[in-house]
């Protein structure tokens, strides 16, 4: 899959959550944490969110720290709530995202968040929202979901 298109299209998808945060940069993990909270508020709770630092500015260490918590939370959600393990999937390099806003790695992390959205209790709402998006974006989203489905093992 074209990983640069992946990041671009999934960034568009993430914006459909209409989350009002001061900094819309995806690489600090703040917006992602809000998206995850919207997807699964019981799991990505207020307590979990309180561990995400919001005032990271350009401090890459804090960004990476946030992104590590995001990735860990996502993998725990897959295992504990969805009963799935993601095997043989090239896990996102959160250092590369935090340090240099690596588009390909960002795409992989957003892909995992997409997997949470289309498998969660409210998945109907999220899938229908995707179906209302531009066709080129839908294709990328479909490919991203298909790739994840191949990597899921119960």
């Amino acid at each position: 899959m074209d990983k640069e298109h992946l990041s671009e299209s999934l960034s568009i998808w993430v914006r459909t959550f209409n989350i009002d945060v001061p900094n819309t940069d995806l690489t600090d993990g703040v917006l992602m944490s809000h998206v995850l909270h919207q997807i699964a508020p019981a799991f990505f709770s207020e307590t979990w969110m309180s561990k995400i630092k919001t005032d990271v500015e350009s401090n890459w260490r804090l960004k990476v720290s946030n992104l590590k918590k995001i990735l860990k939370g996502i993998l725990e959600y897959y295992a504990e709530v969805l009963g799935q393990q993601i095997t043989d999937f090239h896990m996102p390099d959160v250092n590369a995202i935090g340090e240099r806003a690596d588009e390909k790695e960002l795409g992989r992390l957003l892909q995992l968040i997409l997997g949470c959205a289309v498998n969660c209790e409210e998945k109907q709402e999220y899938i229908q929202r995707i179906m209302g998006m531009e066709e080129s974006v839908q294709h990328v989203v479909m490919n991203a979901i298909q790739e994840l489905m191949q990597k899921e093992t119960p």
Binding site: N119, C120, K123
Partner: peptide, 29 residues
């Protein structure tokens, strides 16, 4: 042939996302 290709593409997307809606998952089942 453009409209036919578009319709086919839309069909693929609709089929995929509809099957996803009906897929049982750990959370939704």
């Amino acid at each position: 042939d453009g409209p036919k290709a578009n319709a086919a593409s839309e069909g693929v997307l609709a089929n995929f996302f509809n099957s996803l809606l009906n897929k049982k998952t750990g959370a939704a089942s």
